[in-house]
Design a protein around this nucleic acid. Structure first.
Length: 173
DNA sequence: AGGGTGATTGTTTTC
DNA sequence: GAAAACAATCACCCT
């Protein structure tokens, strides 16, 4: 029962992208209320785009989506709308059981760990670049060696896919 | 020529 | 703690 998420996609115009952006709400969730943030967090504006700044790790859903997109395109080569894959992926994702999502979560978790590592190096860099002047007075020390290190990641790619055999009755009829 | 949009959910982020 | 924002993708539209 339920589902109702989309009962009539066909009702939509052939292609959402075909419609001019102006007609559709410009900035639905993108420019949702940046103004609000700027007022309270305007200081963040200082955050200039850092080329080294690691992006957020993909969530299990995104990991799943990456594979899903490939499969989706195979069966829907004509569908090129990102929203189509998003919707389909979302519904499919919810259709998966925890056990099935487990591997994706595991990968996502690992991805997060790497992200933290990258973030650590990134933060370190920021520290050295921070010209506060109070710390890091001695120029012979930390050095920028860290950057190089981040590139040399350990090679531990083990297929440690632990299949959690949870005997949970995930009976989804 | 390039930025921006749309849609999904999950995690990261920030106050 | 909660709300906001952003993470990838890809064809297309506007400046």
């Amino acid at each position: 029962m339920m589902k109702g998420t989309k009962g009539k996609g066909a009702a939509k115009h052939s292609k959402e992208t075909l419609k001019p952006v102006d007609d559709r709400k410009l900035g639905k969730r993108k420019a949702v209320m940046k103004a609000d943030r700027s007022s309270t967090q305007k200081k963040q504006k200082n955050a200039k785009k850092d080329p080294n700044k690691p992006k957020r790790p993909p969530s299990a859903f995104f990991v799943f989506l990456e594979e899903f997109r490939i499969d989706f395109k195979k069966e829907h080569p004509d569908v090129k709308a990102v929203s189509a894959v998003g919707k389909a992926g979302g519904q499919r994702w919810k259709s998966l059981s925890d056990a099935e999502k487990a591997p994706y979560e595991a990968k996502a978790a690992k991805r997060k760990t790497e992200y933290e590592k990258l973030m650590k190096a990134y933060n370190k860099k920021q520290e050295s670049t921070t010209d506060d002047g109070d710390e890091e007075s001695d120029r012979s020390k930390s050095e920028v060696n860290d950057e190089d290190d981040e590139a040399t990641a350990e090679d531990e790619e083990e297929g440690e896919e632990e299949e959690e055999e949870e005997d949970e009755d995930e009976d989804e009829d």
